[in-house]
């Protein structure tokens, strides 16, 4: 059985832990703790080490999903988790444009340490304030469509939507391996 390690990263509240919880076939290992900083305005709990879930992908492959913390004080965990990743998805809450800068910072951090394939998943698209893909791409610094990684929309609360995102990520990473 082949194992593919996928990392789910992105700013606080993008939906990383929810994403993994939606599709994992094992009870998710989470390290969520009561939030005592600004995060508590968005939600009660926040990830302080990582989330871990597992998912079979066909008969031959198991996907190991690792969710990072969102806050930059845990960047040592970003570092640990990205080192062994085969591919990753950067989740970005499309309705909180003020956090796009955090997403860019995470992207830069990851890019410095790893050249593995990545895609971007826009969450919270069901919010009336959500930005569309095109404008978000520009806000994330992708001015040139050729150099932009695949951008998809995903609702972390819906298993089917998360499964689709994972298929896109795995396919993208396999394409990149061939060239």
């Amino acid at each position: 059985m082949e194992i593919m390690r996928l990392v789910v990263t992105g700013p606080v509240g993008a939906g990383k832990s929810t994403f993994i919880r939606s599709v994992s076939e094992i009870a998710v290992v989470d390290t969520d703790r009561q939030a005592t900083d600004e995060t508590s305005l968005i939600k009660q709990k926040t990830t302080v080490a990582f989330d871990f879930g597992r998912l079979a992908f066909g008969p031959e492959m198991a996907l190991h999903l690792y969710g990072t913390p969102g806050q930059s004080r845990f960047d040592f965990m970003w570092d640990i988790l990205i080192q062994k990743a085969h591919a990753y998805i950067l989740l970005v809450a499309a309705h909180r444009p003020r956090e796009f800068v955090d997403a860019r910072r995470i992207r830069a951090f990851m890019r410095q340490r790893s050249q593995v394939p990545m895609i971007i998943g826009l969450t919270h698209m069901d919010s009336p304030n959500a930005w569309d893909i095109e404008n978000t791409a520009i806000a994330l610094g992708y001015l040139n469509a050729d150099k932009c990684p695949p951008i998809i929309t995903v609702n972390p609360n819906e298993a089917a939507s998360v499964a689709q995102a994972i298929i896109t990520l795995v396919q993208h990473s396999m394409q990149n391996c061939l060239v």
Binding site: T31, V48, A49, P69, Q71, R73, F74, F76, M77
Partner: peptide, 20 residues
């Protein structure tokens, strides 16, 4: 800041391991 974040990460993992 860094020491604090690391302490929290380590404790949460330790607690998880203790449980598991």
């Amino acid at each position: 800041e860094r020491v604090s974040a690391m302490s929290a990460a380590m404790l949460s993992l330790g607690e998880r391991i203790g449980q598991e």
